[in-house]
Design a protein around this nucleic acid. Structure first.
Length: 537
DNA sequence: GGCTAACCCACTCG
DNA sequence: TCACGAGTGGGTTAGCC
């Protein structure tokens, strides 16, 4: 493709877009743009289908330079081209370019950046593959998922909101009585005053800024001696549920479709994960009864079912692959319960004699390993002394020396290069890995240990999304659509009479998307709503 | 004194 | 240090007019 055939597209006025429709749709002319997902959305309004060979300088910058520099890049674009015009033209959520910019100035700038990126990409074959085989195709799929949306039972949510409102009023009254005065329970300052000055609790933990912490852990401990902390805890949780989920979700339903259409952002994490916003569908509650009720409101349309497929223990499996740790690999091949197997290794007890408590300790240790384990962190989590925590960690690494080796190697290499990599070569920059400040450096080291696992999971599920979407497209999506992604889980809407066949094929695609030295496995759930699907396999 | 943006903190999820 | 990665929202505060 000759370079002179490159043109740029951005938010344009109606006539201009219709005039260049043919150019935008043909595969013989290469296009370059900024934030391609938002372009798909705009062009859809004019019935224009952007051709495959369109480059996106935003994704190029994200993949080549990492999140920090990409954020700087976005800031610069906004400053140079958007703020100059009028701040009202910037869409905060979608980061779309203003429709009224200097059409000669920006295209030139975009091309210049693309040519520069192209040179770097030709030298970085793995990054080129991440861009063209993963992130660039994902952009279109995300646009389609946003379009699909998810059906919501608003009546259910509104009823629940009213119930919670009554409970909140009741809790508020109790809190005022116990405190012997009116105060704003949502105000941490006022709550601190009541708890520490009026009732006389002694501080047991600090916030990052040095104030007396009144978070969940602290209030739970306080609850042993007084009734008020537990009331505050309940109030805060219910309030959050009502404002952030029940009321927010009902407000965000599109009146034309009756559905929630979230937005996904593929350039806002250091590890390559997606984020969901406006509203965020990746943190819908599930761990409490009230949370389950909220998930019940995410429903399938008539003659359809909700299918959820999530990767089982995927980060530990990736750790097994990276570290080649013999015991971890063995437990996945034997299909042992991985936490029980870990407990058996740490405590040197046969698997069938492991107690629930020992399994629980091993489970926390397994998570800690993925997050960058330290005696301090583990002691807090297990509520034991640092010395005991260190003992557990020593026992763990004595058996899992492959993992210890992997962690050491990752730290040395990241300290040298400034970045670590996923299995497929995505670079994850760790800017503070050599910081002089011990705390900052230690935090960077923990992030560095976690990054290959979290980032590889993100790559794997993106690859799976591309293949699964390709499969569903074969029948023109009439039997099923992908509607939500939650990091290691995909949620679909599937035609009832095709559910067995399609579920089987999606699972096959997901489990065989890449070859690790341990098997990839998925859990499935099917139901009329999201909660039912979480319960019924 | 009044307004707003940025920060802090607590909550939700994987 | 209060584990890794995120988004949201209410309260508080800093800074401006």
């Amino acid at each position: 493709m000759q370079e002179k055939s490159l043109i740029c597209i951005n938010n344009q006025n109606n006539e201009y877009l219709i005039a260049i429709k043919k150019i935008l749709e043909t595969n013989t002319i290469t296009k370059v743009t900024y934030n391609i997902k938002s372009q798909y959305k705009i062009l859809q309004k004019y019935g224009i289908k952007l051709s495959e060979n369109t480059h996106d300088i935003l994704l190029e910058n994200y993949i080549l330079k990492g999140i920090m520099q990409c954020n700087e890049f976005i800031k610069k674009i906004n400053q140079d081209f958007l703020l100059k015009e009028s701040k009202y033209f910037i869409h905060k959520q979608t980061n779309e370019l203003s429709p009224y910019y200097d059409i000669y100035h920006i295209p030139h700038y975009i091309l210049k950046i693309h040519y520069k990126n192209k040179k770097f990409l030709n030298k970085e074959i793995k990054l080129k593959s991440i861009l063209y085989d993963i992130d660039r195709p994902i952009a279109k799929i995300l646009y389609e998922m946003e379009n699909n949306g998810v059906l919501l039972n608003c009546i259910k949510l509104k009823n629940q909101s009213q119930e919670i409102e009554k409970k909140l009023a009741c809790l508020q009254l109790k809190a005022y009585t116990l405190a012997n005065e009116h105060f704003n329970i949502l105000s941490n300052e006022q709550t601190r005053h009541i708890l520490f000055h009026k009732i006389g609790f002694k501080n047991i933990d600090k916030t990052p800024k040095g104030k007396n912490s009144i978070n969940e852990t602290v209030l739970k401990i306080f609850s042993q001696n007084h009734r008020l902390p537990n009331i505050i805890l309940k109030y805060r949780k219910l309030y959050k549920l009502k404002s952030n989920y029940l009321d927010k979700l009902t407000k965000m339903v599109n009146i034309n479709t009756g559905r929630i259409h979230t937005s996904y952002c593929q350039h806002s994490t250091s590890t390559g994960r997606l984020t969901s916003y406006y509203p965020n569908l990746q943190n819908i509650p599930k761990k409490t009864l009230e949370g389950e009720k909220i998930r019940e409101a995410f429903i399938a349309p008539d003659k359809y079912l909700i299918l959820t497929v999530d990767y089982s223990q995927i980060e530990l499996r990736i750790l097994a692959h990276f570290s080649a740790d013999k015991l971890l690999i063995k437990s996945f091949y034997n299909k042992d319960d991985v936490h029980t197997a870990t407990a058996s290794n740490i405590f040197d007890i046969e698997i069938n004699k492991i107690t629930i408590q020992q399994r629980q300790i091993a489970k926390i240790i397994n998570f800690s390993v993925i997050y960058g384990i330290t005696p301090f962190g583990l002691s807090k989590k297990l509520n034991i002394t640092m010395k005991e925590a260190k003992h557990y960690i020593d026992m763990y690494f004595k058996k899992h020396y492959g993992i210890l080796n992997f962690i050491k190697k990752t730290l040395v290499s990241t300290s040298k290069k400034g970045y670590t990599s996923t299995l497929f070569g995505r670079k994850i920059y760790i800017p503070n890995i050599n910081s002089d400040n011990t705390n900052i450096r230690k935090a960077a080291q923990r992030a560095c240990v976690n990054a290959p696992m979290q980032g590889t999971t993100a790559d794997i599920i993106k690859k799976a999304m591309i293949k699964v979407n390709e499969y569903l497209s074969l029948t023109n999506f009439q039997y099923g659509k992908m509607i939500i992604q939650v990091h290691d889980e995909l949620i679909f809407e599937i035609k009832e009479n095709k559910i067995d066949e399609i579920t089987k094929n999606i699972c096959f695609i997901m489990e065989n998307i890449t070859l690790l030295n341990v098997p990839l496995m998925v859990n499935i759930g099917i139901g009329k709503n999201w909660n039912q699907a979480n319960k019924i396999a």
